[in-house]
């Protein structure tokens, strides 16, 4: 046990040096926000996610797809079947090939994914000055510290004149220190007044809107989070009780061993 302690002490020292070193070497860390979905009992902030969905629909979806998120997935966000059908019907998706061999277009159905705003990556790139707006379904999981990253990115636009020396923000690009390389092609997407929240909701300022978008994107990236946390708490409670029982059972069984009994000769 002393050996383990020594190893642990040595590791702590190494880890201390290591973390100090890596803190010195990394770029701008995302701002840390306390999210409702964090922690063992964390769950989605459904109200906020609904507002985030509204922003996605009215703002983000002009450029960003949500290809792994289907209209029917809105159900756990608090929309009922008719609402989902109505939302889906606002979109047009590819239908069957008709009798002449042509692609038909039909209204979206709950089973369809949110359609991409562009036919393909090339179309997206040519419409956006060479940069392809990434699909957002998994964004929060596809970046380090994703939730805070998206929040920081949305709220982190700064004026070009604040860019440090060596960072050249060319025409049509924007300065955002949270983005890798600090120069981003996306214009600041959110600004006060860009969407109007229904009565009873908090004020639609930049900070609130950004948080709402993150809460929605957390849901699109990890729709199982609610079930996962709930099941996890139950499993850990169950395992703890079982393990405690096993511990005492073991202690009982081992008693004669501890007492020095020879199981092959005594009796």
């Amino acid at each position: 046990m002393k050996l383990l302690k020594n190893i642990a002490v040595a590791l702590c020292v190494t880890a201390g040096v290591a973390s100090a070193a890596s803190a010195a070497g990394a770029g701008k860390h995302p701002k840390q926000v306390e999210w409702k979905f964090q922690g063992i009992f964390g769950d989605f902030d459904y109200q906020s996610a609904q507002r985030g969905f509204q922003i996605y629909k009215e703002v983000c979806s002009a450029c960003h797809g949500l290809k792994y998120f289907r209209f029917r997935n809105l159900d756990k966000l608090g929309y009922n079947e008719d609402q989902i059908k109505a939302i889906a019907a606002e979109y047009e998706v590819d239908g069957d090939i008709d009798d002449e061999g042509d692609q038909t277009i039909r209204k979206g159905l709950p089973q369809d994914a949110f359609p991409s705003p562009f036919r393909n990556d090339n179309a997206a790139a040519s419409a956006n000055g060479g940069a392809v707006p990434p699909d957002l379904s998994l964004m929060v999981k596809a970046r380090h510290d994703g939730a805070n990253y998206v929040y920081s990115l949305l709220t982190g636009y700064e004026d070009e004149s604040d860019a440090p020396e060596g960072i050249n923000v060319s025409a049509g690009k924007y300065y955002n220190p949270y983005f890798k390389g600090s120069v981003i092609s996306m214009a600041p997407p959110l600004a006060e007044g860009i969407v109007e929240y229904a009565a009873g909701n908090p004020e639609a300022n930049l900070d609130q809107m950004s948080k709402d978008v993150v809460n929605f994107l957390m849901y699109t990236a990890e729709p199982n989070l609610h079930d996962r946390h709930k099941l996890g708490v139950m499993v850990i409670i169950f395992l703890s009780v079982l393990t405690i029982l096993l511990y005492f059972s073991m202690k009982k069984i081992w008693r004669p061993v501890k007492a020095g009994k020879n199981f092959y000769e005594d009796e």
Binding site: H229, G232, T243, Y247
Partner: peptide, 14 residues
């Protein structure tokens, strides 16, 4: 195994 599964479950679920 019980102790280990608790450790495993922490990562798995949280």
């Amino acid at each position: 195994l019980g102790v280990f599964l608790i450790f495993f479950a922490y990562f798995l679920f949280f």
